[in-house]
Design a protein around this nucleic acid. Structure first.
Lengths: 122, 122
DNA sequence: ACAACATATGAATATATGTTCATATGTTAA
DNA sequence: TTAACATATGAACATATATTCATATGTTGT
Protein backbone atom coordinates (compact mmCIF):
# COMPACT_ATOMS: atom_id res chain seq x y z
CA UNK A 1 0.00 0.00 0.00
CA UNK A 2 1.14 3.51 -0.81
CA UNK A 3 1.15 6.47 1.46
CA UNK A 4 2.25 9.22 -0.95
CA UNK A 5 -0.14 11.40 -2.86
CA UNK A 6 -1.35 10.30 -6.27
CA UNK A 7 -0.03 12.25 -9.26
CA UNK A 8 -2.44 13.71 -11.79
CA UNK A 9 -3.61 11.19 -14.29
CA UNK A 10 -1.84 12.35 -17.44
CA UNK A 11 -3.10 9.36 -19.23
CA UNK A 12 -5.71 8.27 -21.77
CA UNK A 13 -2.87 7.78 -24.19
CA UNK A 14 -0.99 5.42 -21.93
CA UNK A 15 -2.44 2.08 -21.07
CA UNK A 16 -1.33 2.26 -17.51
CA UNK A 17 -3.28 4.96 -15.75
CA UNK A 18 -0.94 6.27 -13.07
CA UNK A 19 -3.47 7.96 -10.84
CA UNK A 20 -5.96 5.14 -11.03
CA UNK A 21 -3.22 2.69 -10.27
CA UNK A 22 -2.06 4.79 -7.37
CA UNK A 23 -5.51 5.08 -5.82
CA UNK A 24 -6.22 1.44 -6.39
CA UNK A 25 -2.98 0.36 -4.78
CA UNK A 26 -3.99 2.13 -1.60
CA UNK A 27 -7.21 0.15 -1.43
CA UNK A 28 -5.56 -3.14 -2.32
CA UNK A 29 -5.44 -6.00 0.13
CA UNK A 30 -2.01 -6.68 1.59
CA UNK A 31 -0.08 -9.57 0.06
CA UNK A 32 -0.05 -11.44 3.30
CA UNK A 33 -3.78 -10.99 3.87
CA UNK A 34 -4.57 -12.13 0.35
CA UNK A 35 -2.55 -15.24 0.98
CA UNK A 36 -4.38 -16.02 4.21
CA UNK A 37 -7.76 -15.47 2.61
CA UNK A 38 -6.80 -17.73 -0.27
CA UNK A 39 -5.65 -20.34 2.23
CA UNK A 40 -9.09 -20.60 3.79
CA UNK A 41 -10.91 -20.75 0.49
CA UNK A 42 -8.43 -23.32 -0.78
CA UNK A 43 -9.51 -25.56 2.06
CA UNK A 44 -13.13 -25.13 1.01
CA UNK A 45 -12.18 -25.70 -2.61
CA UNK A 46 -12.13 -29.46 -2.73
CA UNK A 47 -15.11 -31.77 -3.21
CA UNK A 48 -14.07 -34.22 -0.51
CA UNK A 49 -13.51 -31.47 2.05
CA UNK A 50 -16.81 -29.80 1.17
CA UNK A 51 -18.56 -33.09 1.85
CA UNK A 52 -16.73 -33.61 5.13
CA UNK A 53 -17.35 -30.08 6.35
CA UNK A 54 -20.99 -30.21 5.40
CA UNK A 55 -21.42 -33.42 7.41
CA UNK A 56 -19.57 -32.01 10.38
CA UNK A 57 -21.64 -28.84 10.24
CA UNK A 58 -24.62 -31.03 11.17
CA UNK A 59 -23.19 -33.43 13.71
CA UNK A 60 -20.10 -34.82 15.31
CA UNK A 61 -18.86 -37.93 13.52
CA UNK A 62 -16.03 -40.42 13.83
CA UNK A 63 -13.55 -40.98 11.04
CA UNK A 64 -14.86 -44.26 9.76
CA UNK A 65 -18.42 -43.04 9.69
CA UNK A 66 -17.36 -40.04 7.62
CA UNK A 67 -15.56 -42.44 5.31
CA UNK A 68 -18.64 -44.64 5.05
CA UNK A 69 -20.99 -41.75 4.33
CA UNK A 70 -18.91 -40.12 1.64
CA UNK A 71 -17.70 -43.48 0.35
CA UNK A 72 -14.00 -42.87 0.50
CA UNK A 73 -11.09 -44.68 2.09
CA UNK A 74 -10.22 -44.13 5.74
CA UNK A 75 -6.79 -42.91 4.82
CA UNK A 76 -7.97 -40.29 2.37
CA UNK A 77 -10.45 -38.99 4.93
CA UNK A 78 -7.84 -38.96 7.64
CA UNK A 79 -5.42 -36.97 5.48
CA UNK A 80 -8.10 -34.40 4.72
CA UNK A 81 -9.09 -34.18 8.37
CA UNK A 82 -5.51 -33.40 9.22
CA UNK A 83 -5.53 -30.40 6.89
CA UNK A 84 -8.79 -29.17 8.39
CA UNK A 85 -7.48 -29.79 11.90
CA UNK A 86 -4.24 -27.91 11.27
CA UNK A 87 -6.23 -24.94 10.02
CA UNK A 88 -8.49 -25.26 13.08
CA UNK A 89 -11.60 -25.62 10.97
CA UNK A 90 -12.46 -28.81 12.83
CA UNK A 91 -11.76 -30.12 16.31
CA UNK A 92 -11.76 -33.66 17.60
CA UNK A 93 -11.99 -35.56 20.80
CA UNK A 94 -10.78 -39.06 21.49
CA UNK A 95 -13.14 -41.64 22.89
CA UNK A 96 -11.26 -44.88 23.21
CA UNK A 97 -10.16 -46.00 19.79
CA UNK A 98 -12.36 -43.54 18.05
CA UNK A 99 -11.88 -39.91 17.17
CA UNK A 100 -15.00 -37.77 17.00
CA UNK A 101 -14.68 -34.76 14.76
CA UNK A 102 -16.83 -31.66 14.64
CA UNK A 103 -16.80 -28.25 13.05
CA UNK A 104 -14.80 -25.67 14.97
CA UNK A 105 -15.26 -22.48 13.00
CA UNK A 106 -18.50 -20.56 12.73
CA UNK A 107 -17.18 -18.40 9.91
CA UNK A 108 -16.59 -21.53 7.90
CA UNK A 109 -20.06 -22.85 8.68
CA UNK A 110 -21.42 -19.61 7.32
CA UNK A 111 -19.17 -19.53 4.26
CA UNK A 112 -20.09 -23.11 3.47
CA UNK A 113 -23.81 -22.55 3.72
CA UNK A 114 -23.47 -19.43 1.57
CA UNK A 115 -21.55 -21.44 -0.98
CA UNK A 116 -24.29 -24.04 -1.03
CA UNK A 117 -26.95 -21.34 -1.34
CA UNK A 118 -25.00 -19.83 -4.19
CA UNK A 119 -25.15 -22.90 -6.37
CA UNK A 120 -28.80 -23.50 -5.52
CA UNK A 121 -29.88 -20.07 -6.70
CA UNK A 122 -28.79 -19.55 -10.26
CA UNK B 1 -29.23 -39.54 -0.53
CA UNK B 2 -31.24 -42.46 0.85
CA UNK B 3 -34.97 -42.74 0.99
CA UNK B 4 -35.37 -45.98 2.96
CA UNK B 5 -35.87 -46.13 6.70
CA UNK B 6 -32.83 -46.36 8.96
CA UNK B 7 -32.32 -49.68 10.73
CA UNK B 8 -31.85 -49.81 14.49
CA UNK B 9 -28.36 -48.97 15.53
CA UNK B 10 -27.04 -52.31 16.74
CA UNK B 11 -23.67 -50.80 17.17
CA UNK B 12 -21.32 -49.54 19.86
CA UNK B 13 -19.22 -52.61 19.16
CA UNK B 14 -18.83 -51.88 15.50
CA UNK B 15 -16.90 -48.87 14.32
CA UNK B 16 -19.35 -48.10 11.62
CA UNK B 17 -22.58 -47.03 13.21
CA UNK B 18 -25.24 -48.12 10.72
CA UNK B 19 -28.07 -45.92 11.90
CA UNK B 20 -25.93 -42.85 12.31
CA UNK B 21 -24.48 -43.42 8.86
CA UNK B 22 -27.91 -43.88 7.42
CA UNK B 23 -29.30 -40.69 8.95
CA UNK B 24 -26.21 -38.75 7.99
CA UNK B 25 -26.34 -39.94 4.42
CA UNK B 26 -29.80 -38.48 4.07
CA UNK B 27 -28.54 -35.08 5.15
CA UNK B 28 -25.43 -35.23 3.00
CA UNK B 29 -24.90 -32.87 0.14
CA UNK B 30 -25.22 -34.45 -3.30
CA UNK B 31 -21.97 -35.30 -5.07
CA UNK B 32 -22.69 -32.93 -7.87
CA UNK B 33 -23.56 -30.07 -5.54
CA UNK B 34 -20.41 -30.61 -3.50
CA UNK B 35 -18.41 -30.42 -6.69
CA UNK B 36 -20.01 -27.16 -7.74
CA UNK B 37 -19.50 -25.62 -4.33
CA UNK B 38 -15.87 -26.68 -4.36
CA UNK B 39 -15.50 -25.17 -7.82
CA UNK B 40 -16.47 -21.73 -6.58
CA UNK B 41 -14.25 -21.86 -3.53
CA UNK B 42 -11.40 -23.16 -5.65
CA UNK B 43 -11.61 -19.96 -7.67
CA UNK B 44 -11.39 -17.95 -4.46
CA UNK B 45 -8.56 -20.13 -3.24
CA UNK B 46 -5.63 -18.51 -5.00
CA UNK B 47 -3.69 -15.45 -3.86
CA UNK B 48 -3.59 -13.82 -7.28
CA UNK B 49 -7.30 -14.26 -7.83
CA UNK B 50 -8.12 -12.99 -4.36
CA UNK B 51 -6.18 -9.84 -5.15
CA UNK B 52 -7.86 -9.41 -8.52
CA UNK B 53 -11.34 -9.97 -7.14
CA UNK B 54 -10.76 -7.63 -4.24
CA UNK B 55 -9.68 -4.87 -6.65
CA UNK B 56 -12.63 -5.48 -8.94
CA UNK B 57 -14.99 -5.45 -5.99
CA UNK B 58 -14.09 -1.76 -5.60
CA UNK B 59 -13.90 -0.54 -9.18
CA UNK B 60 -13.77 -1.47 -12.79
CA UNK B 61 -10.19 -1.82 -14.06
CA UNK B 62 -8.41 -2.66 -17.27
CA UNK B 63 -6.06 -5.60 -17.57
CA UNK B 64 -2.79 -3.73 -17.53
CA UNK B 65 -3.81 -1.64 -14.54
CA UNK B 66 -4.66 -4.79 -12.61
CA UNK B 67 -1.27 -6.16 -13.59
CA UNK B 68 0.44 -2.96 -12.46
CA UNK B 69 -1.35 -2.88 -9.11
CA UNK B 70 -0.75 -6.46 -8.14
CA UNK B 71 2.67 -6.45 -9.77
CA UNK B 72 2.26 -9.43 -12.02
CA UNK B 73 2.68 -10.03 -15.72
CA UNK B 74 -0.09 -9.17 -18.17
CA UNK B 75 -0.25 -12.76 -19.34
CA UNK B 76 -0.66 -14.23 -15.87
CA UNK B 77 -3.43 -11.74 -15.11
CA UNK B 78 -5.13 -12.45 -18.39
CA UNK B 79 -5.10 -16.17 -17.78
CA UNK B 80 -6.65 -15.72 -14.36
CA UNK B 81 -9.26 -13.34 -15.71
CA UNK B 82 -10.26 -15.97 -18.20
CA UNK B 83 -10.98 -18.43 -15.41
CA UNK B 84 -13.01 -15.83 -13.55
CA UNK B 85 -14.82 -14.86 -16.75
CA UNK B 86 -15.69 -18.47 -17.62
CA UNK B 87 -17.17 -18.91 -14.17
CA UNK B 88 -19.05 -15.61 -14.61
CA UNK B 89 -17.52 -14.13 -11.50
CA UNK B 90 -16.37 -11.13 -13.54
CA UNK B 91 -17.64 -9.42 -16.66
CA UNK B 92 -15.82 -7.18 -19.07
CA UNK B 93 -16.52 -4.62 -21.71
CA UNK B 94 -14.30 -3.60 -24.58
CA UNK B 95 -13.37 0.02 -25.06
CA UNK B 96 -11.09 0.23 -28.04
CA UNK B 97 -7.95 -1.68 -27.31
CA UNK B 98 -8.71 -1.99 -23.66
CA UNK B 99 -10.84 -4.45 -21.74
CA UNK B 100 -12.45 -3.16 -18.56
CA UNK B 101 -13.23 -5.82 -16.03
CA UNK B 102 -15.57 -5.68 -13.08
CA UNK B 103 -17.09 -8.02 -10.52
CA UNK B 104 -20.21 -9.79 -11.75
CA UNK B 105 -21.34 -11.83 -8.78
CA UNK B 106 -22.73 -10.41 -5.57
CA UNK B 107 -22.46 -13.72 -3.77
CA UNK B 108 -18.77 -13.71 -4.48
CA UNK B 109 -18.41 -10.14 -3.27
CA UNK B 110 -20.02 -11.23 -0.03
CA UNK B 111 -17.96 -14.43 0.30
CA UNK B 112 -14.81 -12.48 -0.34
CA UNK B 113 -15.51 -9.83 2.24
CA UNK B 114 -16.43 -12.51 4.75
CA UNK B 115 -13.18 -14.26 4.01
CA UNK B 116 -11.29 -11.05 4.62
CA UNK B 117 -13.23 -10.44 7.85
CA UNK B 118 -12.41 -13.94 8.92
CA UNK B 119 -8.66 -13.47 8.82
CA UNK B 120 -8.92 -10.04 10.45
CA UNK B 121 -10.73 -11.38 13.50
CA UNK B 122 -8.68 -14.10 15.06
C1' DA C 1 -1.22 -0.49 -45.40
C1' DC C 2 1.64 -0.15 -41.39
C1' DA C 3 3.40 0.37 -36.68
C1' DA C 4 2.23 0.57 -31.94
C1' DC C 5 -0.44 -1.12 -28.56
C1' DA C 6 -3.74 -3.96 -25.27
C1' DT C 7 -5.24 -8.24 -24.65
C1' DA C 8 -5.70 -13.31 -25.40
C1' DT C 9 -3.97 -17.77 -25.81
C1' DG C 10 -1.19 -22.23 -26.64
C1' DA C 11 2.72 -24.76 -25.07
C1' DA C 12 6.05 -25.76 -21.73
C1' DT C 13 7.50 -26.02 -17.15
C1' DA C 14 7.61 -26.21 -12.26
C1' DT C 15 5.04 -26.92 -8.33
C1' DA C 16 1.11 -28.22 -5.52
C1' DT C 17 -2.42 -31.39 -4.34
C1' DG C 18 -5.32 -35.67 -3.59
C1' DT C 19 -5.43 -40.53 -3.26
C1' DT C 20 -3.58 -45.03 -2.41
C1' DC C 21 -0.72 -48.38 -0.23
C1' DA C 22 1.83 -49.96 3.45
C1' DT C 23 2.70 -49.42 7.95
C1' DA C 24 2.93 -47.09 12.56
C1' DT C 25 0.55 -45.67 16.79
C1' DG C 26 -2.36 -46.23 20.39
C1' DT C 27 -6.63 -48.40 22.59
C1' DT C 28 -9.60 -52.26 24.10
C1' DA C 29 -10.86 -56.84 25.26
C1' DA C 30 -9.51 -61.53 25.97
C1' DT D 1 0.71 -60.28 26.34
C1' DT D 2 -1.72 -60.71 22.25
C1' DA D 3 -5.19 -59.95 18.70
C1' DA D 4 -8.42 -56.88 16.82
C1' DC D 5 -9.48 -52.48 15.85
C1' DA D 6 -9.61 -47.13 14.79
C1' DT D 7 -6.86 -43.75 13.36
C1' DA D 8 -2.59 -41.40 11.69
C1' DT D 9 1.11 -40.87 8.69
C1' DG D 10 5.09 -41.34 5.22
C1' DA D 11 6.13 -42.35 0.50
C1' DA D 12 4.87 -42.81 -4.16
C1' DC D 13 2.15 -41.66 -7.82
C1' DA D 14 -0.97 -39.30 -10.90
C1' DT D 15 -3.20 -35.18 -11.83
C1' DA D 16 -4.17 -30.28 -11.52
C1' DT D 17 -2.66 -25.63 -11.43
C1' DA D 18 -0.07 -21.16 -11.92
C1' DT D 19 3.28 -18.76 -14.34
C1' DT D 20 6.23 -17.67 -18.20
C1' DC D 21 7.46 -17.23 -22.96
C1' DA D 22 6.33 -16.65 -27.53
C1' DT D 23 3.01 -15.41 -30.49
C1' DA D 24 -1.75 -14.45 -32.22
C1' DT D 25 -5.74 -11.33 -32.46
C1' DG D 26 -7.86 -7.19 -32.93
C1' DT D 27 -7.85 -1.95 -32.46
C1' DT D 28 -6.09 2.83 -33.19
C1' DG D 29 -3.66 6.42 -35.34
C1' DT D 30 -0.62 7.75 -39.17
Amino acid sequence: MQTKECPEDICDQLCEHPQLICITKKEAIADDDAQQVAEIFKLLGDTTRVKILQLLSRRELCVCDIAAVIEMGQSAVSHQLRLLRNARLVRYRREGKMAWYSLDDEHVRSLLSQGIDHIKHR
